[in-house]
Amino acid sequence: MYEIELLINGRPFRGAAEARTTLADFLRHTLRLTGTHLGCEHGVCGACTVLVDGVSARSCLMLAVQADGAIVETVEGLAEHDGTLHPLQQAFRDAHGLQCGFCTPGMLMTLVELLRETPHPSEDEVRDAISGNICRCTGYQSIVDATLAVAGAAGTEGSEP
């Protein structure tokens, strides 16, 4: 077993994991952070996407031991402590960017990365960014709409998400 310490959403966490434990299982089972979802477990569906040291990664294709010392961001870190939704979450809600919600954590974390890099993406850039995230409910249109809405809103207020 390996002792793993990491910073998740600004809070320090520690736990023990076997070498073969993926980061996704470590987050969900050991640390009980079940906001990150696991779909296919082979890197295709994108549900388990988290940010590791600022960049998006499939948490099913990383070992927990590889994240020792890393800064990890998950969907649990998006909303404010008082429950106020992140602007992207609010836009998803407003535009019906989710139905069952299974893909949503991966969609949100991927789009958070996109909007940090590209605060005002084109529709093509949004669609390219989420090309590795499978949604079986929405047909993607409402997800794209939500992202473009929040990107537009961020621009008019002069702040970046």
Binding site: G43, G46, T49, S56, A57, L61, M62, D128, G132, N133
Partner: peptide, 9 residues
Amino acid sequence: VGHRQTRNR
């Protein structure tokens, strides 16, 4: 090649 999340790693 894959997607942005896989190209990051």
